[in-house]
Design a protein around this nucleic acid. Structure first.
Length: 601
RNA sequence: GGAGCUGUAGUGUAGCGGUUUAACACGUCGGCCUGUCAAGCCGAAGAUCGAGGGUUCGAACCCCUUCAGCUCCGCCA
């Protein structure tokens, strides 16, 4: 080193935020960003920021005229190195709002390592800046200590999980990002092959088949922080590429997987949030979830369980109810505690929402101290009204909502109303973490547009053995050995026991109407693998980003992803996606059929 | 593919029942200032009101189209 003496070449001795009264008197070298500059003409204060925190540097013309002079040109977000002495702040100038507020650095030397243009926003202020601007200048957005905190959490979460799984004998194995497109599921992102023009790789929607094949290979316990890609439209909690904690185990059953992952979540929540996860986590069948909450991912914090009164309603004098029952429908309701205060207009609004979701109407009953207000009240006998109220355990001040219609409509609309009311009345405690397992999913789901059954989870999910005989006759009755874990109304993970026997897997493919040639072409390698001594196995995958989002109580998944995409799947920082040079397309033998509109952004 | 909300100096907002020099705060630049910490005081620059078209004597404001961001439905095994 020819120039050990210059500040730029010197070693940083401390982080800004690490300094305390213990270092008073020491000569230190700090490097960081100028968060704020207060120029008093005679004395200049610089708040210096690095990842460890903030400290005040003082430059005075009396002490070090050179450094004072050099700091004249320093502006916000300049990167500087300073050498100076840690000293106790003069009496009366201590800043109790700063962790380093008792001290300051008396700067003897300052070096500008880099300048900065005036940024569109300052890391100090930021949070109410338009998100598009934050994404465009993501490096400035990420410069905020609040963001470092998020990513520190995320890092600690992944470390904790890795340690936990390691302690349980799991191997972390990477699987390919370039793989083949498979039918079923989401739209694939495609990558053209140069070597085989006209052929394409697909980016994995999940490492599903690879992890199963690792089981065939005898790895027994696999996990991976796997990047997954799905070319579908975005939501606040959905990105086109996201991270899964992907796991698979051999010689294992549902209970063991659920117990193990509950333990993992318990360790994680304890370590990062100091929260106890109550174990065992509640389990609920898909059927009960749909009936009780109108959703396969119920938010149990909301209460307002759906109550079925079909039998009673069918016998009442109210045609709206009894007619629907006679037509083969159901009558169900929810009790909204304390919502009796809603105005007529707000109630009409609710009813309008319900009809928007496909309901024929919404029957509401406002419970007063002695009377019951409802447009339908006079259609009931008095004792019928009383019965209605007692069936739902209604109390004065409550609102009862009922719907009469075909079962799926009632379920789904009441389910949505539940969420709407939960939101409106702030019924969910944001500090509570309410987990629930949903089990016994149907194996298949009927796809109306394609006029065939398809796998609800994915086509490698094993049917429950007692339902196996229904596979060819009443496929929609077959229950899967699948399970989802739901946290506060958001699905954070799901998995299943897989088919390890070739014959069962074949029957399942047939049931979803896949032609034998297609099966062979698309999944042949998996079926081949099953033929060579595949052990019973199963697994689960957690949406890692979503989990972090919920743990940190963020509104959007973008807040916990370093470089997220916009709702239209673009990156405002890089400008991706973008056109490529004609030469690149030629090489791939790709021609674009889009005539115009292929221009840049 | 559909519905809704938003778009005005670098940033955040006001103005939107038609006539303004398009206002305010922060930031920026210049000056003053030796103990501030969201420093203070004085001054200045900075906006073709997302874009295009239309109605009108006159449009940031009304109408149409379009683009972008966000939320939701569809979609996402």
């Amino acid at each position: 080193m020819e120039d050990e003496k210059t500040l730029a070449a010197a070693r940083r001795t401390h982080g800004c935020g690490q300094l305390t009264v213990d270092q008073i008197g020491q000569d230190v070298v700090l490097m960081g960003w100028v968060q704020r500059r207060r120029d008093h003409g005679g004395v200049i204060f610089l708040d210096l920021r690095d990842r460890s925190g903030l400290v005040q540097a003082v430059l005075s013309p009396d002490r070090q005229p050179g450094a004072f002079e050099a700091s004249q040109g320093v502006r916000h977000e300049y990167v500087v190195a300073v050498r100076g002495q840690v000293s106790r702040r003069p009496e009366g100038t201590v800043n109790p709002h700063m962790s380093t507020g008792e001290i300051e650095i008396l700067v003897s030397e300052i070096d500008i390592l880099n300048t900065s243009k005036t940024p569109p926003f300052y890391p100090g202020e930021a949070m109410d800046v338009d998100e598009a601007i934050r994404l465009r200048y993501r490096y400035l957005d990420l410069r905020r200590p609040e963001m470092w905190e998020v990513f520190t959490y995320r890092h600690r979460a992944s470390m904790t999980i890795r340690e936990f799984l390691d302690s349980k004998g799991f191997l972390e194995v990477e699987t390919p990002m370039l793989t083949r497109s498979t039918p079923e599921g989401a739209r694939d992102y495609l990558v053209p092959s140069r070597v085989y023009p006209g052929y394409f790789f697909a980016l994995p929607q999940s490492p599903q088949l690879f992890k199963q094949i690792l089981m065939v290979a005898g790895f027994e316990r696999y996990f991976q922080f796997a990047r997954c890609f799905r070319d579908e439209d975005l939501r606040a909690d959905r990105q086109p590429e996201f991270t899964q904690i992907d796991m698979e185990m051999s010689f294992i059953n549902e209970d063991e997987i659920m117990e193990l992952t509950e333990e993992m979540l318990a360790v994680l929540f304890k370590k990062l949030l100091g929260q106890e996860v109550r174990r065992p986590v509640t389990r609920m069948t898909y059927r009960d979830a749909m009936a009780g909450y109108g959703s396969d991912k119920p938010d149990l914090r909301l209460g307002m369980k759906i109550t079925d009164i079909t039998e009673f309603a069918g016998k009442t004098s109210c045609q709206v109810f009894s007619g629907a029952v006679q037509a083969g429908g159901v009558v169900r309701g929810i009790r909204v505690p304390g919502a009796g205060s809603l105005s007529r207009r707000e109630l009409d609004e609710l009813a309008k929402l319900a009809t928007g979701w496909g309901a024929k109407g919404l029957a509401w009953f406002v419970l007063g101290e002695s009377e019951i207000r409802s447009p339908l009240a006079k259609l009931f006998q008095n004792e019928e009204l009383q019965e209605l109220v007692s069936r739902l355990d209604g109390l004065p001040g409550d609102l009862l909502l009922f719907m009469a219609d075909r079962e799926p409509v009632v379920s789904s609309v009441l389910g949505q109303l539940r969420l709407e009311l939960g939101e409106r009345f702030k019924l969910a405690d944001p500090d509570q973490f309410s987990f629930v397992w949903i089990t016994e999913f149907p194996l298949f789901e009927y796809n109306d547009t394609e006029k065939r059954f398809e796998a609800m989870h994915h086509p490698f999910t094993a049917p429950r053995s007692e339902d196996l005989h229904l596979l060819e006759t009443v496929p929609d009755q077959v229950r899967a050995r699948a399970y989802d874990i739901v946290l506060n109304g958001t699905e954070i993970g799901g998995g299943s026991i897989r088919n390890h026997r070739r014959d069962v897997q074949d029957r399942l493919f047939k049931a979803i109407g896949l032609a034998p040639e297609e099966i062979d072409q698309k999944f042949g390698y998996l079926l081949d693998a099953l033929d060579y001594g595949a052990p019973p196995h199963g697994g689960i995958a957690f949406g890692f980003d979503r989990m972090i989002m919920l743990m940190l109580q963020r509104e959007t998944i973008r807040d916990v992803i370093a470089f997220p995409k916009t709702q239209s799947s673009t990156c405002l920082m890089t400008g991706a996606p973008a056109p490529v040079a004609p030469k690149q397309l030629d090489e791939l033998k790709i021609a674009c059929t889009l005539s115009k509109k292929n221009g840049g952004r």
